[in-house]
Design a protein around this nucleic acid. Structure first.
Lengths: 203, 203
DNA sequence: GTCTATAGAAGGATAGAC
DNA sequence: GTCTATCCTTCTATAGAC
């Protein structure tokens, strides 16, 4: 693969990411992607054969990025409370830089749940619980966290972080009349969300 | 409009709701809608002229239903805590019966934020706050709720209720390995979410 | 590797018979 | 009001020249 190859393939991938996240698989047009990449439609097929191949490449990259963002929580040598603060700060900051990813992913997974299966299969939830339990054995006694309520808690944390971006269009519509800026709201949310969750789970 | 008209138009609308919520505007096919309605493609155009008209009819009906579900909270003669319990119970029950609505709405609003503007313009957020304040003047002192933090709180409540349905594909993938049933999880969530939020906002 | 031109299929919309 | 047949545009994908 020559240097020039690399550049073109890269340009196509970036253009495809742009267009797919903006319009979704069904709404995206190969012509539009070619225009964004500043090249010809035929070249897309030369590098990626079909629209489906190109989409899958983009989807898997983005889905991978998204899930990776949850990982550091299980490595960091932080208290449970610090981990929660760390997560919201990092995750929301990531989403501020990639605000369209949540809507894109949620939608495409709904259209085709099988797409995400492969990625999810790699996650061993029971193992993650054991890690958390080991890391915070004593600390856990201060919180209402059990293996049984983990799904409720985890999905609530994800919801609080991800939902505002997925529902951005609605929120901005409402905020408009209250003179609230979406970015200010998200900035404030990093701390609010952490306080909110920590308070909720304390015994 | 004859009785027969009514039946056909109704059948079309129901079929369109089914197909649009399942595949989205871009992914839906007029032929598919016609098949679901058990009629001919040309009839769709006879009743709704274009795909766009038909979609808008479906979208506005669904968006209206969704927003109406938030209204009773401001009418009910309940304590703040009871209102929160009432909301999660009612809203999640509604979504259990219409599990694809969240994903559909969030996605279509992202594709075209202007679509929801008209509906949102009718909501007077400042007035809603005044109502809440009047209804719970004394009670509010026991909670960390101010006009300033209302957006954070409201969006968190919506998130906790709506997100699991929008992310259903991901959650079911994860739950599968833990032998958790999505419906059981949602049933449990009605109470969990209420406890969670009430705890979080108590002073 | 990149382009132009075009094939081939799909899908929205309409004409016209009944 | 409902159907069949068909038009016409759009879009993915490929052939073939350079």
């Amino acid at each position: 693969m020559t240097e020039n190859d690399k550049q073109t393939e890269e340009k196509i991938f970036e253009a495809a990411t742009e267009v797919f996240t903006e319009r979704g698989m069904d709404g995206a047009r190969m012509q539009d992607i070619a225009d964004h990449a500043g090249i010809n439609k035929a070249l897309l097929h030369y590098y990626y054969r079909t629209k489906d191949h190109l989409f899958n490449a983009v989807f898997e990259k983005i889905a991978g990025q998204m899930f990776k963002k949850f990982a550091p929580v299980f490595d960091e040598k932080l208290s449970l409370e610090e981990k929660i603060r760390f997560f919201f700060k990092e995750h929301i900051t990531f989403l501020q830089k990639n605000p369209r990813l949540p809507g894109f992913l949620l939608n495409e997974i709904n259209r085709n749940p099988g797409r995400i299966k492969k990625l999810i299969q790699q996650i061993d939830v029971n193992k993650l619980w054991l890690i958390l339990e080991a890391q915070h054995k004593d600390e856990l006694k201060k919180y209402n966290i059990t293996k049984e309520t983990m799904p409720q808690l985890m999905s609530s944390i994800a919801a609080i972080s991800v939902f505002p971006f997925a529902a951005r269009g609605i929120l901005e519509g409402i905020f408009e009349k209250m003179n609230i800026n979406f970015n200010d709201y998200m900035e404030e949310r990093k701390g609010y969300a952490a306080d909110f969750v920590i308070k909720a789970i304390k015994k």
